[in-house]
Design a protein around this nucleic acid. Structure first.
Lengths: 161, 161
DNA sequence: CACATAATGTTATGCGCATAACTAACCTGT
DNA sequence: ACAGGTTAGTTATGCGCATAACATTATGTG
């Protein structure tokens, strides 16, 4: 692969990151949320109460990031943290009523953003999109155990058909 | 579009952003570069010396970000800033010899990263990838003049075939 | 059981990126 | 020629994310 093509790919990913995040920031601001926080709320809504370590795993970010996110979301009243009875180190995170209400609004925004994002693409491409993006992600993922070699069959991730 | 699909798209973009950037960070670290800086160097290599405002435009980030990036790259000796003769407000940014040497190494890394990223995708998909990503980007781009409606024909960006 | 090792979470620090507020220089139009 | 608006750049501040270093609790093995 020559540099032109490589740069086209890398640059496109970089710009998409910037713009998609910027758009998400703008949409979430009226709800008093910063980007990244919505992912935490949605995960709690999807899976239910869980420990921070699980959140870190699910969100794909490091424990210190989760510490800060949970602290801020707790301060704004959308989540609650309580000690885990079975493990004195861990704290269980769950949505408050305020948080549950917010999630509904976030879901709407999320649909609007996704539709806006894929506008103009053929339906077929849209259908393949999550799979393609997840493949790209897995290819550069150094967090999960290295399954970059010997990946058998399809890579599977949340949201894939 | 229902929430499941929407979330699959948004989440995939978010994770790809995180992982691709993380991988770029790891690859650039041995060169003493942080992610984002490589884009500035590559742009200078591609287009030649330019003013910060043009860099801001080309990189798709805000002027204050360019101020900091240029300051750090200047401190590490890869670029040089000198006053523009025709405009006392502006400063011209250009690569130093050290910077030019670095660019060659960055280009190699960039090719390796892109190849790693698209591993396992059919060649046809790889060929369409920059176009798809640029469409997504344009769809959520609030920076450029709003061409989200009435976009005629193809959206064109650097690197598109 | 004791002790080494692992896992959970926190604090400190640093980078990229953003917005807001500001200065200095450069146009315009009248 | 000068008043008003625009543009180039900077500083200050804040968020998300990362890594490093640390304290605390769990756990598995001698």
């Amino acid at each position: 692969m020559d540099f032109e093509q490589a740069d086209a790919v890398n640059q496109a990913i970089r710009l998409l990151s910037l713009r998609h995040r910027a758009r998400a920031t703008a949409l979430l601001a009226p709800l008093g949320l910063y980007p990244g926080q919505e992912a935490l709320l949605l995960e709690l809504d999807r899976t239910g109460a869980m420990i921070q370590a699980q959140l870190s795993e699910a969100l794909g970010c490091e424990p210190p990031s989760v510490t800060l996110m949970t602290r801020k979301l707790e301060a704004s009243g959308h989540i609650r943290r309580k000690p885990a009875p079975s493990d004195k180190r861990a704290s269980i995170v769950e949505l408050t009523d305020s948080g549950k209400a917010l999630v509904d609004r976030v879901k709407q925004l999320w649909c609007a953003l996704a539709e806006e994002t894929v506008t103009g693409l053929p339906a077929e491409t849209v259908a393949e999109l999550p799979g393609i993006l997840n493949t790209l992600t897995d290819n550069v993922d150094t967090r999960r155990p290295d399954r970059r070699y010997g990946l058998i069959g399809e890579s599977r991730r949340a949201g894939e058909r």
